[in-house]
């Protein structure tokens, strides 16, 4: 409904389609130092997450009550230990697995549902469009974090339910993006032509509309992972996310905030990790937007 959204949408609607688009985009992306830095950060966390079992000799769960609150760099604990005597570095690298997975899956979920609804609304128009668009309006009028809180409260607190809640609240973002893209494509000649030769609706949607809507989705999706990771952590911080002993970063923050004076490192490192990984995705997403959108090219 807002003009900003509208502006973004119309900007994407004018991207020309070319075979070499992806190659061009990569070339442009590679020139952008900040985007490469972002990609590097993301890659770094992916490697941490994948290699977690190799990187650390400790388990992320369990409890060693005699080992509570060991300071960073002492007794073989790079980042110290937490209130249950667990190695903080271990929990952070396993936490990377969780944040990346939840962020990615939540965005994929939003994209699938949002794209579907957006395609349907944009292509068929009329009352279907009316209903879907109004539902999006209603959802966007909600303070999203409160909506997520309510959904998790209904479904029961768990990481999966947090993921579902985050996926749901972000559906309208993608839905409206795709809808406006479809609306502009519908007027293009090749779609008109396809319709004229009697191509079936689903084939038009699947073969023409969907592929042509992918670019803005990819850009928005990359930025969306950043948002989803923060939202996961926020729910975790409010005690509505992961179930212990799962080392989710937001939950770790909530667990250790009571010890901030006694053991500040248990608060500093999980927060820093959230910030870095989100920064990575934001940089990468910004870069992708510039690279995939030649209009913005300097």
């Amino acid at each position: 409904m807002s003009q900003l959204q509208h502006k973004v949408e119309t900007t994407f609607a004018t991207i020309p389609k070319k075979e070499s688009l992806w190659l061009d985009a990569w070339k442009r992306l590679r020139r952008r130092k900040l985007a490469m830095l972002g990609g590097g950060i993301v890659l770094f966390f992916i490697i941490l997450a994948v290699l977690a079992p190799v990187l650390t000799p400790y388990p992320y769960d369990g409890a060693e009550l005699s080992q509570r609150f060991i300071k960073p760099m002492e007794e073989g604990h790079w980042l110290g230990t937490d209130d249950l005597g667990r190695d903080l570095f271990t929990r952070i690298v396993y936490g990377a697995q969780i944040s990346l997975r939840v962020g990615f899956l939540a965005v994929v979920g939003s994209i699938i549902v949002g794209t579907y609804l957006g395609l349907v609304a944009g292509y068929y128009g009329k009352w279907i469009d009316m209903i879907i668009s109004r539902v999006f309006d209603i959802m966007l009028a909600f303070p999203s974090i409160l909506l997520a809180i309510a959904i998790v409260t209904i479904l029961g607190r768990s990481l999966t339910n947090a993921l579902i809640a985050i996926a749901i609240i972000n559906v309208p973002t993608y839905g409206r993006l795709v809808r406006s893209k479809v609306l502009s494509l519908k007027e293009e000649e090749f779609i008109m032509a396809a319709k004229a030769i009697g191509m079936k609706n689903w084939r038009i949607i699947y073969h023409h509309l969907l592929p042509n809507s992918m670019t803005p989705i990819i850009v928005q999706g990359t930025l969306g992972i950043a948002t989803a990771i923060i939202e996961t952590a926020a729910l975790g911080f409010l005690g509505l996310g992961a179930v212990p002993p799962t080392p989710e970063w937001g939950t770790m923050l909530a667990d250790s905030k009571d010890y901030i004076q006694l053991a500040p490192w248990t608060v500093i490192f999980p927060g820093l990790s959230i910030m870095l990984v989100v920064l990575g995705f934001n940089l990468l997403g910004d870069g992708l937007r510039d690279a995939l959108d030649p209009k913005m090219k300097q």
């Binding site: 769960d61 369990g62 409890a63 009550l65 209130d83 249950l84 212990p244 002993p245 667990d255």
Partner: peptide
Amino acid sequence: KKIAEAMQAD
């Protein structure tokens, strides 16, 4: 929560 986690480990 902490007590539960510690007991869980045992």
